Simulated scan of single mutants.
Amino acid sequence: MSSNDRIAPVIPLFGGTRGAGPSTGSVEAAPLQPEPRVDDPSDQHDVSAPSEPDADEIRQRAEAALVRRLRAKQLSVSEARSVLRENGLDRNAVEDVVDEFLRRSYLDDHTLASLLVISGSERKGQGRIALARSLAQRGIARDIIDDALAELPDDDAERALDFARSKASGMSRLDYDTALRRLHGQLARRGYGGSVAMDAARTALGEVGVRRASSRPSTAHPSGVRFVDSE
């Protein structure tokens, strides 16, 4: 065999000894085997149980929720407490947050009551009874409600008549008793009660021509005195 016909020696890549002479066959590389993994107890984590938020996190979330609500509309102190309780704060934490918001004037029942009274009387035509009811539904204290109502001028009769006039024209086709009953009911629902509502309804209906068709005949007393039924 000539020198050109000799086969170069094979160098094993994965283990084995280096051959010194010519190779008489092919050499297969042994597959790599992963090293056995030894678990470290310190690497074990329970991912199934999420960590509970602490008190500070709960308070921050509750305050953020309250701020978002206050950006949408002004709340009473009672309504603010409800928002905080809904977001997981206990009683002591609720009072701490409310005190802080009061100190910063984020909450002010006196200002809120005044605004609601002005809006209800001027825009909605509400009387004192309806105004007091709407403020109480917002959780505002009775003494604050009384202070807000005291700022109103004593003109319930005038406001009632203005409201009655705005509704009376739509009742011109009704008979008098039906129109009076409906208009009086609308006035009562807006907080005008008793004689104020009745006087306003009668005046407004009379102005648009809705009157009682006829009065009952007068009756004569045996003494000769005549009595006429009034409305």
Score class of each variant (00 low, 15 high):
E52R: 14
E52Q: 06
D54E: 13
A55C: 10
D56N: 06
E57M: 11
I58H: 02
I58W: 01
I58S: 02
I58F: 00
R59Q: 14
Q60I: 07
Q60M: 11
A62D: 15
E63N: 08
E63I: 07
A64G: 07
A64P: 03
A65I: 14
A65T: 14
A65R: 15
A65D: 15
L66G: 08
R68F: 01
R69V: 03
L70S: 04
L70D: 04
L70C: 04
R71G: 13
K73R: 13
K73A: 12
Q74F: 11
L75D: 08
S76T: 02
S76R: 00
S78T: 14
S78C: 10
E79I: 05
E79L: 10
A80S: 07
A80N: 04
R81S: 15
S82H: 06
S82N: 08
S82V: 03
V83K: 08
V83C: 07
L84R: 03
L84Y: 02
L84P: 02
E86K: 11
N87A: 05
G88T: 05
D90L: 06
D90S: 09
R91M: 06
N92E: 12
N92R: 05
A93G: 11
E95I: 06
E95W: 04
E95D: 13
E95A: 11
E95V: 10
V97W: 14
V97C: 15
D99G: 10
D99T: 06
E100S: 09
F101M: 03
F101I: 01
S105F: 07
Y106D: 05
L107Y: 07
D108W: 00
D109W: 00
H110V: 00
T111P: 05
L112V: 12
L112K: 10
L112F: 13
S114N: 09
L116D: 13
L116R: 10
V117E: 11
V117Y: 13
I118D: 12
S121I: 07
S121H: 04
R123H: 14
R123S: 15
K124S: 15
K124H: 15
G127H: 00
G127E: 01
R128E: 08
I129M: 14
I129V: 14
I129H: 14
L131Y: 03
A132Q: 02
A132D: 05
R133Q: 07
S134P: 02
L135H: 01
L135T: 01
L135Q: 01
